[in-house]
């Protein structure tokens, strides 16, 4: 592992003055944020706040107007092997003739390198990752023959197989039952305890309060970032959620306060 002083000191993900826009209006505006290593971090904000966009920009998947994103202190282009990404809704072809095991093997492709084939050691690791997400029994199934929650587990296993120091997940708990959510959360905490960074977009503030260490509150601009207890105050939450609601009046209890 790269446990030199430099990488240990560098935050897992650092975003500097990031501005990004789609057709006409900025979706992210001058966002500054850091996420530490060895922590379970959440990105929280209303729908359309730009959370997914922030992750995509951080991974260099979309062009940004300004600013930069650094993975462990380096631009993402030169540190692809340090970050694993689980997208929000996989735009994959579920009818593709591919098994669960092969999907997870893809997590190894970057390390294996071009042209070379998947080795025995990779296969052991893949079996391991499937075991960790509780999908070992499904290894030979075609990917489309799984439920939504099971598919989510497989994509998390693929990210695990990348053995990256930084894991970035976009709403891994969307459409997942309580049991699966608890399993995945336990797994993410294990990863955190191994010293990696796990950054998750999540909507349930209760879980974030209970299980996460660090949080970024985002609504086009970074509203607050830091340890969960400091950041999730009624004041900042109102700033993040209240404005986007627009129609909410003072008497109405905002959803998050319940």
């Amino acid at each position: 592992m790269r446990s030199t002083a430099e990488t240990l000191a560098a935050p897992a993900l650092e975003v500097r003055r990031l501005t990004a826009s789609y057709s006409s209006r900025p979706v992210l505006w001058d966002v500054d944020a850091t996420f530490p290593m060895g922590a379970l971090s959440a990105i929280v904000g209303p729908n359309g706040a730009g959370k997914s966009t922030l992750l995509k920009a951080a991974l260099g998947l979309i062009a940004t107007d300004a600013g930069q994103a650094l993975i462990q202190g380096r631009p993402v282009k030169t540190s692809r092997d340090r970050v694993a990404y689980v997208p929000q809704r996989d735009a994959v072809d579920w009818d593709f003739p591919i098994t669960v095991r092969e999907v997870v093997e893809m997590g190894r492709y970057a390390q294996i390198g071009w042209v070379r084939r998947v080795q025995r050691s990779d296969q052991t690791l893949v079996a391991d990752c499937l075991e960790r997400v509780g999908m070992a029994a499904y290894a030979s199934r075609q990917i489309g023959q799984l439920s939504g929650g099971q598919r989510q587990r497989v994509f998390i296993a693929r990210a695990l197989a990348q053995q990256a120091q930084v894991m970035v997940m976009d709403e891994p708990f969307a459409g997942v039952d309580a049991r699966t959510e608890a399993d995945i959360l336990g797994l993410l905490q294990e990863l955190r305890n191994e010293g990696r960074a796990v950054i998750v977009v999540h909507h349930d503030l209760g879980t974030v309060r209970a299980a996460f260490d660090w949080v970024l509150l985002l609504n086009v601009r970074a509203i607050a970032a830091g340890p969960v207890a400091d950041v999730l105050t009624p004041e900042t939450l109102r700033r993040a959620y209240g404005a986007a609601g627009g129609l909410e009046t003072e008497e109405q209890e905002p959803r998050w306060a319940a």
């Binding site: 998947l61 735009a91 593709f96």
Partner: peptide
């Protein structure tokens, strides 16, 4: 493996 990965999941292939 490159053809397989890019055909199945192009966005993931880009991230690796």
């Amino acid at each position: 493996k490159e053809f397989k990965a890019t055909t199945f999941d192009p966005e993931f292939s880009r991230t690796i």
